[in-house]
Amino acid sequence: MDAQHLTLIYLIIAAAVATFATRVGGYVLITQLKHIPPRIEAALNAVPAAVLTTLVAPAFVYGGFDVATSMLVAFAVGLRLSSLRMLLVGWIVVMVIRHLIL
C-alpha cells in the first residue's frame, strides 16, 4: 500500500470518528448541560447551510455558462420537487448545452 492510499484510509477512519462524535455528542452534552446559550445554538444551527453553500456558490460563479444554467434550472425545480428530480433535470440541461448547442 503506497503512502497516499494509506493517507486516504486514515482520512476515512478520522471522518468516521468525527461523524460518530457528532452522533454521540448531543446525548453526552444534553445529559450534562441544562440549556445551550441561544447564540451558540443559532451558530450551530447555521453550520450545515453555511458549509454547503460554500460548495455551491463558487461552482455557480466560476463553473461556466453550462454549469450555471443547469444549476439555475435545477434550483427552480428544487423549490418544488425532490433533489433526485433536481439532479435529473440539471443533468439533462447540461448535456443538451454541451452536446447539442455548444
Binding site: P48, A49, L52, T53, L55, V56, A59, F60, G63, D66, V67, S70, M71, A74, F75, G78, L79, S83, M86, L87, G90, W91, V94, M95, R98
Partner: peptide, 18 residues
C-alpha cells in the same frame, strides 16, 4: 457525460432542504 454538475446540484438540493 455531465457527471461534474451532479455534486453542486446535489449540494444545492441539500441547502434548499434547510
Amino acid at each position: 457525460i455531465g457527471l461534474d454538475v451532479l455534486l453542486p446540484i446535489y449540494f444545492l438540493g441539500l441547502v434548499l432542504g434547510f
